[in-house]
Structure formats: structure tokens, C-alpha cells
């Protein structure tokens, strides 16, 4: 997951709800630590602004998994 900085208003909801504590604040906006995120989508369901989204870290594997 990644947070769209333009969409994020900085309410902090996802920061507190992330089960991996993978989200922190920088410049009053949420940022996801890509090494801790497990793509559980908790932040997607938490966010009222639609700011978190998938930006796959392993693009080649997406093709692979879609095919299977």
C-alpha cells in the first residue's frame, strides 16, 4: 500500500489502526513503511478520503499471480 499525499488530509486514523504499525506521520501526512506493510488493506477500509492504494512493490509477481 501507498498513501496518496494529495488525498491524505492527515487525520491519523490509519496510523493508529494499522496492525503492523507500518504507518507513521511525516509533515502531518501518513506515510507507509514499505518494508513493514503486509497489504492487509486495513488502511483502505479506514480511510474516508480514499488515500491509500495499491502500488505493487513487485510488479512482475502481479502478472504471475493473475495468470494462476
Amino acid at each position: 500500500m501507498q498513501i496518496d499525499k494529495e488525498q491524505c488530509v492527515g487525520c491519523g486514523g490509519c496510523v493508529n489502526l494499522c496492525p503492523q504499525s507500518a504507518i507513521y506521520f511525516c509533515d502531518n501526512r501518513a506515510v507507509i513503511d514499505q518494508f513493514s506493510c503486509t497489504e492487509c488493506r486495513t488502511c483502505v477500509l479506514a480511510c474516508g478520503m480514499g488515500a491509500p492504494g495499491v502500488s505493487c512493490r513487485f510488479p512482475l509477481m502481479v502478472v504471475f499471480s493473475e495468470a494462476s
Binding site: G10, G12, N28
Partner: peptide, 12 residues
Amino acid sequence: DMKRDIPRVFRA
């Protein structure tokens, strides 16, 4: 606090 600017309100 996790915010940079404590008095700013970003939360509804």
C-alpha cells in the same frame, strides 16, 4: 504527538 504542528486540526 505524531503531528508536526500540534495545534493544527486535521481530524474531523
